[in-house]
């Protein structure tokens, strides 16, 4: 179709589409009048049954924990997919061999030199960021946050190191093999906790750990454990994902020269 034809065709269809959608939405209860029962039942029972105060975390990692397992693997598969799609091609490698002189430490491969002040500031932020990320992960069952949110925060820490211009350190921190193993270990731990439930309790992902005292950091049984596993997986996964994109920009700088 030509651009104009496509536009007219789309606009007509979209008007009808919107009509159909609004017709459907009209059948919903008015906003602000959620009728339950699913969420209400869980709000009532989750704290007693699982000794957690953040019900969303309980839903995520226990009542509907299997969804989250699937979600972890969506992330996992996209990281693998991203690595596969952004892998270096033969011809790219070849041209790299030609420019062998430009090794990792060469100035060509580095980010623009930041000023000392930026350096100190960004590197100084890494510590608090990591602590904050860990805090968010560890308190998942108590307050808003959890393995997922904390994991992403943790994943941005190595990026600060990169922004500070310390590429060598950055490479050390994000040692590819290690991060890959960490990611798989996180995903594997989630699966393993599920298996423990299957073997000891007869149902996949059933809680088999002590529940602890409500409000304490070690409460929630498997919820706390899965939370940690998720934190590891998500942090490593996002490091790999961001790294895959970052490497693309590095590679072109290497080849492009000036």
């Amino acid at each position: 179709m030509k651009r104009r034809g496509r536009m007219i065709f789309f606009l007509l269809s979209a008007a009808v589409f919107a009509g159909v959608y609004l017709w459907g939405l009209k059948g919903l209860p008015a906003v602000g009048h959620y009728r339950g029962p699913y969420g209400d039942v869980l709000n009532q029972v989750a704290t007693y049954e699982r000794h957690v105060t953040d019900i969303v975390t309980a839903v995520n990692f226990d009542y509907r924990g299997f969804d989250t397992l699937g979600e972890e693997f969506i992330l996992f598969m996209s990281v693998v997919g991203g690595t596969v799609l952004l892998r270096r091609q033969r011809e790219e490698e070849k041209s790299e061999h030609k420019d062998q002189a430009l090794s990792d430490e060469s100035p060509e491969r580095q980010a623009p030199e930041p000023s000392d002040a930026t350096r100190v500031l960004t590197l100084g932020l890494v510590g608090p960021l990591v602590v904050f990320g860990l805090y968010i992960v560890a308190h998942g069952q108590l307050t808003p946050g959890g393995g997922f949110q904390g994991g992403v925060i943790l994943a941005t820490a190595p990026l600060l190191v990169y922004l500070a211009g310390d590429l060598k350190k950055f490479k050390q921190i994000t040692s590819h093999t290690l991060v890959e193993v960490a990611e798989a270990a996180g995903a594997g731990a989630y699966l393993a906790i599920g298996f423990a439930g299957l073997i000891l309790g007869g149902a996949y992902l059933r809680n088999v750990a002590a529940l602890g005292k409500t409000g304490m950091i070690n409460s929630g049984g498997t919820i706390a454990l899965i939370n940690l596993a998720t934190g590891l997986e998500v942090a490593a996964g996002f490091v790999l994902l961001l790294y895959a994109f970052l490497e693309q920009t590095l590679e072109i700088r290497l080849r492009g020269g000036k």
Partner: peptide
């Protein structure tokens, strides 16, 4: 309280 289930669904959705 509001429904926790949709919030869990949204978390999945964001990922």
């Amino acid at each position: 309280a509001v429904d926790p289930v949709v919030q869990a669904l949204m978390l999945t959705d964001i990922v």
